[in-house]
């Protein structure tokens, strides 16, 4: 059953078309990696999933609910979809623990104690129990991104979106974040990840989507994608990122 379904999605910025008739789906428990050159529309596509970006044509359906429909309670829907950003986007004026409890308390209506307990568990899980009372600016990039993942998980999401979660990190910190993501995938979390980490894709992805100039050029099972991508553009792209 589809967790995320996109049907003929098109979006324009003025007269510039960022997304061209994009259709795909992510089934429950599936991990789908989205890759493609910079500027191809990956971030825009993933932001359309939880309506952080509006789109003019097509439809996005999450767990049976149409994201773009006028009556949709977007905050409630978004609360069930975790999102992790390239630049972490932790709230700098809140402690790590407060970053983890804000949504639980204000959106889910949990009590402070319950939210804290959940926060402690998740920090433990990403190996940052000791940092609970620090502030984001006092953590390394890798640590911040792990906190960001814990913050998203604190809301008990039904699926997770990642937008290049490791591309702003120093190389030595990439693995600590990927390890958390791999673990999450292996536990059966539904994930849509914009990422160029092909090692990660090989390890846990079910499918790989390749985008170019606003189009989904390739949407293939991992084995097919790495075995022999059908389109020339995908072949070129792969040879570029795999050979350095």
């Amino acid at each position: 059953m589809a967790m995320i379904e996109m049907k003929n999605l098109s979006k324009w910025y003025g007269s510039f078309q960022v997304l061209k008739d994009c259709s795909t789906r992510v089934d429950r428990g599936e991990v789908v990696v989205v890759c493609g050159p910079s500027g191809s529309g990956k971030s825009t596509l993933i932001k359309c999933v939880n309506a952080l970006e509006r789109f003019q044509q097509g439809e996005v359906i999450i767990d049976g609910i149409s994201v773009g429909a006028p009556g949709t309670d977007l905050p409630r829907l978004r609360a069930r979809v975790g999102m992790v950003f390239q630049h972490f986007e932790l709230f700098p004026h809140l402690s790590i623990m407060e970053n983890l409890t804000l949504g639980q308390i204000r959106v889910l209506g949990r009590g402070a104690d319950e939210a804290r307990d959940k926060g402690v568990k998740l920090l433990e899980r990403v190996g940052l129990r000791e940092q609970a009372e620090k502030f984001p600016g006092q953590l390394s990039g890798g640590q911040q991104q792990r906190v960001a993942i814990a913050r998203a998980l604190a809301m008990d999401p039904m699926c997770m979106l990642f937008d290049e979660p490791t591309s702003a990190l120093d190389p030595e910190m990439i693995n600590e974040v990927l390890d958390v993501m791999v673990e999450l995938a292996q536990e059966g979390m539904t994930m849509m990840c914009v990422s160029h980490e092909m090692g990660f894709a090989r390890k846990v992805a079910n499918r790989v989507i390749f985008m170019d100039r606003g189009e989904i050029v390739e949407d293939a099972l991992k084995e097919d994608f790495f075995g022999k991508p059908r389109s020339e553009r995908a072949q070129q792209f792969l040879s570029k990122i795999l050979h350095h």
Binding site: K47, N50, L52, P75, R76, R78, A79, R80, V81, G82, M83, F85, Q86, H87, E89, L90, F91, L102, G103, R106, V107, L108, R151, A152, M155
Partner: peptide
């Protein structure tokens, strides 16, 4: 950064809550 607004909204805060918190 725009990402701050996105992060607030993405966790399910309403727009007024995103401003407030």
């Amino acid at each position: 950064p725009d990402g701050q607004r996105y992060a607030g909204l993405a966790m399910g805060l309403t727009l007024p809550q995103t401003y407030r918190f």
